[in-house]
């Protein structure tokens, strides 16, 4: 039971993290004409943030140790 609640709290945390990462003003911070690994920074940022949120969710759901 305790474990399930912890997993849920992690998912809620992932939700709020996504809300912040995917929106203004963080988005505008990365909106600049430089490049990361030859990719425009905003593209790299948004895909990285997206993958991060999905990874967080996967961890929250699949982690047995929590």
């Amino acid at each position: 039971m305790q474990r399930r609640i912890l997993g849920r709290d992690r998912l809620v945390a992932a939700f709020f993290a996504g809300c912040v990462l995917f929106n203004y003003p963080l988005l505008s911070v990365f909106d600049r004409p430089s490049e990361v690994f030859d990719i425009p920074m905003i593209f790299a940022y948004i895909f990285f943030a997206w993958a991060l949120v999905i990874a967080l969710m996967a961890w929250a759901i699949e982690a047995r140790s929590g």
Binding site: A14, F15, G18, C19, F22
Partner: peptide, 15 residues
């Protein structure tokens, strides 16, 4: 992209 970010967020609250 936002039309795919929205579903991602909502799935975090899927349970």
């Amino acid at each position: 992209l936002p039309v795919y970010l929205g579903p991602t967020l909502v799935m975090a609250l899927g349970w």
